[in-house]
Design a protein around this nucleic acid. Structure first.
Lengths: 183, 183
DNA sequence: GATCGCATGTAAGTGGTTACATGATTTA
DNA sequence: TAAATCATGTAACCACTTACATGCGATC
């Protein structure tokens, strides 16, 4: 598994939940998963084609859909096999790139006020994300309790809530510390 | 700032702390920063060259070093200006790619035992990282209290400790939940 | 004299983003 | 009829990784 295209497996995984078009995948990712996985159109469409050629997906055109016709993809036996094999592989650390922490690390080159601004901006972003995650979580708890992946969705949203809240708490603590040294 | 090469700024930032060779940068990143920033040699060396051409860095060969001679880079006025300008820019969300959470999300395709294995493996990794971070933090607290960036290092290690501990706690909670539903 | 660590580097290829093109249908 | 939304797609370019090449000096 030196170089397995994770994006392809991600797409396979989302389609395994229900048949979808490329457009659907983009929407679903944006709405429910952008805090842990994102894709651009330029990735999605070529991968869908490639995976159909390989026999991991099959598709049909949805004649009932308006506007331009949608091509709906669904996972095949072979695709599901491949997905399951991948899911079993232990997750090895990939290169982290935390630009915010990098900038804090270089804090000596900024004034206290500038640092405070950076942290406040990050804090606002985190809080917005916490809110968004909470909203989707509530929606799923109310409308999708019977989904087969319901417990796993709750696990991931639980992870997000706890980790993001910790980040927010760190911001508050750090801002308080910075405030003290300014005055 | 549509497409500013963050890697270049990261390298500039680390060199701003003290003059270093490409080799040093790699070592320092690996030892102290790999939990939030990593680079490969194939990135570092060409970027060093390019930034010297642009006048952001200047270099000399260290004649005293054994083996192959080391080329030491240090930041210029221009480089420091560029770095500071970049540090002021607010950090916009970049595409997250959390393979572990992705796999948990697809948990319906795994058996409980397989899921437990995944979480345990992740847990071990997180714990190892927490320990590593703690070790470097202690080392810096004991040996580098007088560094100008000391308070900023502590902020970043504080962030790491809290966030990673939250991840570990989530693993423990999740494993307990999974254990219950198995037996 | 083999091997390890220091030190710098490159070729080839993959992965990914940005920005744009296209065109149909619905809504204002 | 203009604008928005649905829907699919591509060209060009940049970022990044893997794997390897090179070669010196110290150590075993």
């Amino acid at each position: 598994m030196a170089r397995c295209n994770k994006t392809a497996y991600a797409i396979l995984g989302f389609i395994s939940k229900r048949p979808m078009s490329g457009y659907d995948i983009k929407k679903v990712l944006e709405r429910t998963s952008k805090w842990y996985w994102a894709e651009s159109n330029a990735q999605i469409y070529p991968i869908l084609k490639r995976m159909e050629e390989k026999g991991c997906l099959e598709s049909h055109v949805d004649e009932t859909s308006g506007a331009r016709k949608r091509r709906i993809y669904q996972i095949t036996e072979k695709g599901l096999d491949k997905l399951k094999t991948w899911l079993l592989q232990p997750v090895e650390p990939s290169t982290y790139r935390n630009e915010f922490i990098l900038k804090i690390n270089m804090g000596q080159h900024l004034s206290k006020e500038q640092l405070v601004q950076q942290v406040e901006h990050f804090h606002e972003r985190i809080q917005k994300q916490v809110k968004e995650i909470q909203e989707i979580r509530n929606y799923i708890e109310e409308e999708h309790k019977d989904r087969p992946d319901y417990p796993y969705l709750m696990m991931t949203y639980g992870y997000a809530t706890e980790v993001w809240n910790t980040k927010a708490a760190w911001c508050e603590k750090t801002l308080a510390e910075l405030q003290e040294t300014i005055s």
